[in-house]
Design a protein around this nucleic acid. Structure first.
Lengths: 229, 229
DNA sequence: ATAGTTATCGACTATAAGGCGAAAACTGGC
DNA sequence: GCCAGTTTTCGCCTTATAGTCGATAACTAT
């Protein structure tokens, strides 16, 4: 037996696209104009088409909101399948996690904006739970993979990277050891260049880049864990 | 628009249920008697019902093959959605990873058996890829979570635990430090009891148990990583 | 008793992390 | 130009964890 006659089974994809801006981890949401859940904020996404897999599908729907080429990372998050997650319909959602680096600023439609991932505005359906899952997945992976490359610009200073990690993780990280630890493990490579100092002066910071911009699992970075006491 | 009229969209759940037996990581498969893919081996699972989420669904279908209460762990793995993953139908699968401890031996139907997860017999559809994903997820999580509790019996010796980890990971692990490292981190707790020695003699081994049988993320266990050289 | 077997412990070495203060390299005001 | 202020980077020291090896404990079988 295939889809129930009285209540057809639909499948949609949704994407929690995250970025760090001004020290805040943000998620992309658009405001629904029409019922159901008019006025509430929703994740980008849409129905799974007959001839595509979920990865193609999420890229296709994201293209309505943002230049997909500016996404530095996209991965499956989880399936959300509560029979009542969308009132009046039976729709299973495959959620994705997308990341945008700090040095690109994708233009988005008028109904779409960026909101603090820790405190989003009222969302449609279960989209708040999906945002939480995406945020938690990012935080977990930051400490045992090199996923930071997807949030950081192509070259950056140590203190700039520290700010990105602190914003994404939601707590301050000790910057002193970050260069040493990440460099020793081969995650960071110095470019040899230096950044211009800010207007307050200070020594110019050396620029680094991620050695490997493909996702790799590493030992966890103790420097990224919360302080013990 | 809901499901395409000419090619209805179905959703199924599948479970890669793994266990360690005699030093081998095994997966539960049943042999299909009827087309399509008659004679090939398949993962347990079935269609998503109209009033259940995927977690309830996978437990319901697993109950046909095994006593679900004997599963020590069950988690979402990934969505498999290639439009041609099942010939002639459009069916999206949510795959789960299940684990069975070494000290229970669930009875299974006649068409169902356990096969080496590293080298399964010819499978139906994309079930071999799902087995690989489940195996890889287990291996990754063994080294940064306490998921070992789900494979091990309720109490065990250090060398017994070493064998389980070695079988699941596919490579030998250094046993010398395992007790010290896992105990220091609070993952293992001595029960105070000792096991009877084997027939060849030897000092009786102390029995341990996992301190916390709920899944917790820990620092990775360096003792579980492959040797450096 | 004694040889064989397995488990556990202690001592030592090596590696990595964390903290702190000094030094380096800049800006802007005087 | 000099000096105060700012930010980054480096070096040294302490602590924590991992890895190795050999010694010792606790058993079985003959």
């Amino acid at each position: 037996m295939s889809a129930n006659a009285t209540r057809p089974l639909d499948h949609e994809v949704l994407a929690a696209v995250l970025r760090v801006r001004d020290g805040v981890l943000e998620v992309m949401l658009w405001q629904r104009a029409l019922p159901p859940a008019a006025g509430r904020w929703a994740l980008p996404g849409g129905a799974l088409g007959p001839d595509e897999d979920v990865a193609s599908c999420v890229r296709r729907h994201l293209a309505d909101k943002v230049d997909v080429a500016q996404l530095s990372h996209l991965e499956q998050l989880a399936v959300f399948s509560d029979p009542h997650r969308v009132p009046g319909r039976r729709v299973v959602a495959t959620a994705f996690l997308g990341l945008v680096p700090t040095d690109v600023d994708p233009s988005v439609p008028a109904d779409t904006g960026w909101h603090a991932a820790d405190n989003p505005p009222p969302t449609a359906f279960d989209h708040d739970a999906i945002v939480r899952r995406g945020r938690d997945r990012l935080r977990a992976k930051l400490s045992y993979t090199n996923l930071g490359f997807a949030l950081a610009p192509s070259t950056f200073t140590i203190s700039g990277l520290r700010e990105i990690y602190a914003a994404a993780l939601g707590y301050d990280v000790a910057a002193t050891n970050m260069q040493r630890v990440l460099t020793r493990r081969g995650v960071l490579t110095p470019t040899g260049e230096a950044s211009a100092p800010g207007r307050a002066g200070g020594r110019p910071a050396a620029l680094y880049r991620f050695t490997d911009r493909s996702l790799r699992v590493t030992d966890p970075f103790a420097v990224l864990r919360p302080p013990r006491r």
